[in-house]
Simulated scan of single mutants.
Amino acid sequence: MRINSLPLRVRLTLLMAMILSIACFSLMAALIYTARIVYVAPQLVPKVSTSEEMGREPLPVTIPSVPPIPSAPPIPSVPPVLIEQQINFASTGFLCVILIIASGSVLTYRVAGGALKPVTDLSKEIEEIDENNLYRQVQVPPSKDEVSRLSISFNRMIRKLEKSFTAHKHFTANAAHELKTPIAAMLARIEVVQLGGPPSLEEYKEALQDTQCNAERLNILVHDLLRMNADLNVAACVTFSAKELFQSILSELAAEVQSKDIDIEVHLEDIPVYGERNLLHRAFSNILHNAIKYNKPNGSIQITGTRHPDTTRITIADTGIGIPEDQTDKIFEPFYCVDKSRSRELGGNGLGLSITKAVIDKHSGSIQVQSAMGMGTTFEVQLPNASTVY
């Protein structure tokens, strides 16, 4: 059986038993060695009697010309009594060591059970969570230990999962609605043509034109959904001029700019941008499209850029109708529209800024928005430079 497969309580007990065994046996060995040195060794050293102790006159000492070879001292023999005492001391000591290890292991097992009780309770609470109570949160112990922090982290994860699942549910419902609307319009138009009398050529043309418009709307919607989930092609990332990028975008939106007589100022001299040009073109085009669409007649748009050692910052500010403060953090959600009726009237589907956010995130950048009702909106995009990426 592998140690890692045992319960944590048992593993802690085995670890403590091993530590006690090493400590106790080491201490016992040291005691036995010390006892032999202190109490046994002095008794085995032979006592040498001097001539004064024997009551005789000391003999004169003569120094021979050649010193004699010293003989080895006699090896003293250990008395049987001392051997028996040593055996009794060692056996008694090892018996005490075994009792200490056993009692220490039992005590460790009981203490570990009490210490791990919050973990056990937390595990039981988590096991009771299923698909019927997926967002149920666990109780946080009053202590400020690791178990309390683990419970707080688990509850935070549950809230994130709930938010993610809710967003996914809303996305699915909104996507189904957006896809269903043009399909229902096409089917309704076809039924009108079929229910009437023999249709004329003009009626056929009108039906085909309506069907084509709804088909194009479906195509754009599907293309936008695919673009949101498309991976960044790192091989296609290059450094190019931000001024040329926005000149290309503004040329595509020239008709919309002229229709509302909007003044656009571009200050992007010597500002480089690194990334996949097609994706960034779409991202900034969506921001400018909204800045024009929701702007006031005779309004203005300012596009400025600043270069930093690690990032490039591009700011797009307009004088439009603005966004409510409580909705600025929701405008990047898929299919979200501040004013659904107005967005539908202007041909929006709520995916433009979601695609922009996805593109900026794929480039490891960031996008922030500041807005005030009736005053305008400012988007600030930061993109890393090529030197930072590599």
Score class of each variant (00 low, 15 high):
330 K>A: 07
155 N>V: 00
169 K>N: 13
46 P>V: 05
332 F>P: 10
156 R>D: 10
273 V>W: 03
76 P>D: 09
238 V>Q: 15
297 P>V: 11
166 T>K: 10
23 A>N: 10
216 E>C: 01
304 T>S: 13
187 L>H: 09
16 M>Q: 12
132 N>C: 08
159 R>L: 01
146 E>V: 08
5 S>V: 08
84 E>K: 12
138 V>L: 00
30 A>I: 08
373 M>V: 14
246 F>T: 07
28 M>G: 14
65 S>F: 13
93 G>F: 00
331 I>K: 13
208 L>Y: 05
199 P>F: 07
273 V>M: 09
328 T>D: 08
232 L>V: 13
70 P>L: 06
158 I>L: 01
122 L>C: 04
38 V>Q: 01
318 D>W: 13
45 V>T: 14
204 Y>E: 00
31 L>N: 02
256 E>S: 03
113 G>K: 12
343 S>M: 01
280 L>M: 02
244 E>G: 06
67 P>Q: 12
337 C>E: 13
347 G>W: 06
85 Q>V: 05
268 L>W: 03
362 K>Q: 06
381 V>I: 12
323 I>P: 05
65 S>V: 12
49 S>H: 08
180 K>G: 12
32 I>W: 02
61 V>N: 00
254 A>C: 03
155 N>T: 00
107 L>W: 14
328 T>E: 14
126 I>K: 06
239 T>W: 10
94 F>G: 00
125 E>R: 09
253 L>E: 11
365 G>W: 02
103 S>H: 08
180 K>R: 15
105 S>E: 10
164 S>T: 15
99 L>W: 01
238 V>F: 12
386 A>F: 10
249 I>C: 08
294 Y>H: 15
3 I>Y: 14
26 S>V: 01
73 P>T: 04
79 P>Y: 01
363 H>C: 02
31 L>P: 00
371 S>R: 12
308 H>Y: 11
254 A>K: 06
168 H>E: 14
141 P>D: 07
268 L>Y: 00
68 P>C: 04
22 I>R: 11
259 S>V: 06
245 L>N: 07
267 H>V: 10
121 D>T: 08
22 I>M: 15
58 P>Q: 06
94 F>Q: 08
206 E>D: 13
189 R>N: 05
390 Y>F: 09
119 V>I: 11
362 K>T: 02
253 L>A: 03
237 C>F: 05
303 I>T: 08
206 E>Q: 14
80 P>L: 02
340 K>P: 14
12 L>P: 00
277 R>L: 05
219 N>P: 00
158 I>W: 03
180 K>V: 04
182 P>W: 00
236 A>W: 04
271 I>M: 04
217 R>M: 03
72 A>Q: 08
285 S>Q: 15
194 Q>E: 11
41 A>S: 07
345 E>G: 00
213 C>D: 03
93 G>Y: 05
112 A>C: 09
359 V>C: 03
219 N>G: 02
